[in-house]
Amino acid sequence: MSKKGDDIWKNVDKINSELFTLTYGSIVAQLCRDFNHNYHEVNNQLDQMGYNIGIRLIEEFLSRTGAQRCQSFKETVEVITKLGFRVFLNIQPAVENWSSDGRSCSIVLPEPNPLNEFVEIPPTKDLWYCQILCGILRGALQMIQLDVDVNFVKDTLKGDDKTEIRLKLNKILKDEVPAGED
């Protein structure tokens, strides 16, 4: 088990990223077949899966990294992109396009990422292949009392120039913040 000061990535159990890519691809393909190519349903299922994963993943993240409460949304996004994505997917997305009030920004995923590497999707504008990530982010942030809107705006699988997620802070759930933090 890791001690304080240990390198986080060194202590992580690793698997081949292709195995992960293939497993995720298999699930999405089957969902498309099951729902007869109604891609909105597929997106919703992926989002639900992600949400369930996110509410548990946050404990894994906090226990392995020892991150503390962030003082601003900018800091939160920084921790998510520099640590969160690195620890779980071994990628580091870029952050850009901050709004003037500092409450929303875009996360640009690097190409390729472990979910959609070597994937081709059927010609449609409705499927967001990596929708599971939106669910994961929303679920994880809900558990630390942040209400956010997360959606995809661009996807390279659809022919866009980059894969971009828009993240917007709605509100901080002050009532649910645990006692004992100042």
């Binding site: 890791s2 001690k3 304080k4 000061g5 240990d6 390198d7 986080i8 990535w9 906090l62 226990s63 392995r64 990294t65 020892g66 991150a67 503390q68 409460r69 962030c70 003082q71 800091e75 920084e78 921790v79 520099k82 640590l83 645990p178 006692a179 004992g180 933090e181 100042d182």
Partner: peptide
């Protein structure tokens, strides 16, 4: 201090302490 903790975490990539119990028992 949380900000210092997080900054240290990001710069070194090493595990820190995540106890948020500051003013409680």
């Amino acid at each position: 201090d949380p900000t210092a903790n997080n900054a240290l975490l990001l710069s070194t990539g090493k595990v820190q302490n995540s106890n948020t119990n500051k003013t409680g028992l």
